[in-house]
Structure formats: C-alpha cells, structure tokens
Design a protein around this nucleic acid. Sequence first.
DNA 1: ATACATAATATACAGTTGTATATTAATTAT
DNA 2: ATAATTAATATACAACTGTATATTATGTAT
Lengths: 223, 223
Amino acid sequence: MNPSRKAAPARKSKSNRQGRKPAISRQDIVDAALQLLGPHRSVATLSLREVARAAAIAPNSFYRHFQSIDELAVALIEQAGQSLRDLIWKARSRVGAGESVIRASVETFLQQLQSDKHYLHLLLREGAVGSAAFKQAVERQLEFFEKELQTDLVRLAAASNTPIHNAELVSRAITRLVFSMGTSAMERPPAEHPKLIDDVTDMIRTIMVGTETLAMQNAPSPR
Amino acid sequence: MNPSRKAAPARKSKSNRQGRKPAISRQDIVDAALQLLGPHRSVATLSLREVARAAAIAPNSFYRHFQSIDELAVALIEQAGQSLRDLIWKARSRVGAGESVIRASVETFLQQLQSDKHYLHLLLREGAVGSAAFKQAVERQLEFFEKELQTDLVRLAAASNTPIHNAELVSRAITRLVFSMGTSAMERPPAEHPKLIDDVTDMIRTIMVGTETLAMQNAPSPR
DNA sequence: ATACATAATATACAGTTGTATATTAATTAT
DNA sequence: ATAATTAATATACAACTGTATATTATGTAT
C-alpha cells in the first residue's frame, strides 16, 4: 500500500475553457491560510476576509474557489492528513533492522511539531470544533491513520509470530493516544518532547503487550 | 479522598460592604453561558454580548464579574471538570462486588453525553482551542482525572494482588483514551454508544493486561 | 475585429463585536 | 437626611464581518 498521493480533483474541469485566466488557484488560498495558522491560531478563528487578505485577493474572489470558509477548512485538514501520512509512511519504510518501528513512527510524528508547516498543529487541535462537515473531515483523517496502522500491525504480527487480539481496536487506541498526547505536547516546551516520546512509546508498548497476552490466552496453542 | 467540592473563592470579599446590591452573580452568568453551549456549540464561539444577552444584563455589566470572556471560559471548564469527577466518584463508590469498576466508570462517563447539562461536551470538545489560560485550564482538569484514576488503580492493584507497571503512565493513557473516544461518540447517534462503551472497556482491559504482564516480567517473584 | 464568457475587483450595506465614557439606581455608613 | 460607594445601564464608536450587486479586466472562440 503506497502513500497514494492522489491529486485533489480540479474544481471545474471545463475542457473548453473560455474567458479570463484564473489569477490564483485553490491551492494558493490554502497556502495563504496555512501561513495564518500555527501553534497559536486555529482554523475556527479564520475569517473569510482575513484569508482573502493573506492571499491578496478581494473578499468576494474567495467564492470563486470555495463555497465557504468551511470548505476551505476541510481542504486544509485533508491536505494536512495526507501529508502527515506520507511522512510517516516514508519514515517507516526506512527503519532499519534493529530499530523499533513504533518509536520511529512516534518520533517522526511528534517531530512535526517543530516543523514550520503547521500540518500537525492543524490536525491535532481542531478535533471537535467547527461545522459538522469539518468535524467529519477530521474524523476521516483519523480513520485513515487507524487503517494504515492496522495493516502495519497485522503485518508485523505475522512477521514476528506474535498474535494480536482485536487489531482494529488496538490500532484505534494507539492512534487516539498519539494524537491526544501530541495535543498536550503542542503546549509544552520542546525540551519536554523527548520525555514525551518516551512516555508515548511506553504506553504503546503496554498496549502491544496486552493485546499479545490476551491473544495467547484466548488461543493458547503453542504451535 | 472525597469529591472535594471546594467552593470557588468569591471574587471580592469586601467584608465592609457598601453600595448597591449585586443583581446578578458570577454563577448566574456561568449558568447562562452553559445554556448557550451544547453538542453543537463550542465555548470558542461565545461572544461577550451574546452571553450578556442570555444573562439578561447589559454588555458592560459582564465586566463586573469577569475580566474577559476568557475568564468565563475557564470558570466553565472548571465547573464541568469538578462536576464530572464528583459524578464518577459517586458511581465508583456504589459499584457492587461482582461488577467491573472500569465498566461502571466508562458507562457513567459516557452517559453524560445524553445529559441536558453539557459538561461533558464542554470538556471533551474544547481540548486545544482558545487562549493559553483556557487550554491550561482544560489540561488541569485532565490531570485531575488522571490523578484520581491513578490512586484508584494503585488501590485496586493492591487489593487484587495484581501488580502495575508505571501506574502514572497507565492512568494517563486511559484518561486520554476515554476522552478521545468520548469526543468521537459525541458526533454519533446514541444507538452506537453501547458498542462504543464495549470498545473503550476492551481497550482499557488491554492496557491493564499489558501493564500487569510487564510488571510481572520485571519483578517475577511469585510470592 | 467582435462577441462572449469567465475572473477579479469595487462599492456598499446591514449586522455584530468589544469597549470607552457618562449617567442613573440602589444600598450602606455617617 | 446626606454623603459615599458600588452595580448596572445607556449611549456611542470604530472595527470587522459576510455577502449582494454592479463593474471592469482578461482571456478564448468565432
């Protein structure tokens, strides 16, 4: 399963173009909004006029690209989720033999807090405020993470011959945990991040040991 | 350790009162704000004027009781946290012999989603948006939950003679998990809540088994 | 060259917000 | 009764918001 960077479908792909050439793209607006956001600014506080200002367009021009601020917010979340999953995928695929996949993933994930792109802040913070559409978008991204983690867990379990009890729940628990701890980390000085990575890794290991133990109890055939 | 309902310190307790009698109390404003909130309305979207309107006072009168909207938000969070912890404490203390403390706690917690008081929504949703003071207030409430859970876990472990590996991390993990899953539950129809309670209970059990196994590995004296 | 279609802007408006200032009302101390 | 002190309101203002309408610019097809 590769990172699947499918380009977002163009808004209106009239092949027979006619009329004025767009001076600005949907993506340009997304980028402008992204610059406004950050550790101390949440999507919910973005105003249409402000984004338009940042993108150097007239307020009304915004409507040519998005129906509403909400549609922009969804686009932001989707881009953030996509980018982060790509990133983790790359990190995992280059993890060496002796190293821990868990630790590598957690590390690359939380390292993004320092990044100047604010994808992680975006995804962590906005969990549950905003319109229904927006909240669903966030939830959708979370589920993507969960699914990818699940296939990874199953693969790992098969490789190392350690069973797993209820892989779906386990991957969901881990994902939620990482996101929740990441949210806390956001508000703390970077000096505390290493300790936090240790903690999260330890939590995940506890879950892994638990699921393994439970699986062995339920199907104790030593084969 | 009892529920510790300490009354919030009065704003200005001039013993030598003089002047006009307050027509409205801090708490009245908190109550008015609470009515505005709910499953689909977050603290971040409250405006001073709106709250004043709901409390039937002039906008400026608000300042007599709170320095800013932010101070009100913090008060809201604190009241929500306090109430919920009281509630869980009561639920736990009346759990019978054969029943599961874990399950009872999770159940009473998530049942609050149906309550007409919106404490749980408040606490679940607002995790990471808002001012620094506000976010710290939320984090503080989370830590209260963690601490109470930790003492509970330690007590339970001693009683049932099952060891615990790193009780602090375990209680933190469980707390975060419950809150995160609760946030998701908020957006889903009540019909799915039982299944959700099962899931969360299962997750927690996995963690408990994990911590137990780890503890036994580290100190395998069979005494 | 002309018509047409599209993108972007200009102007405008009504609504809301936070807050500064001034005024009135109610209560207590003297 | 009068002064003092506090609570609450009234009025006002500048900033900002989303959006409706009209106009201008810029490209393509004929």
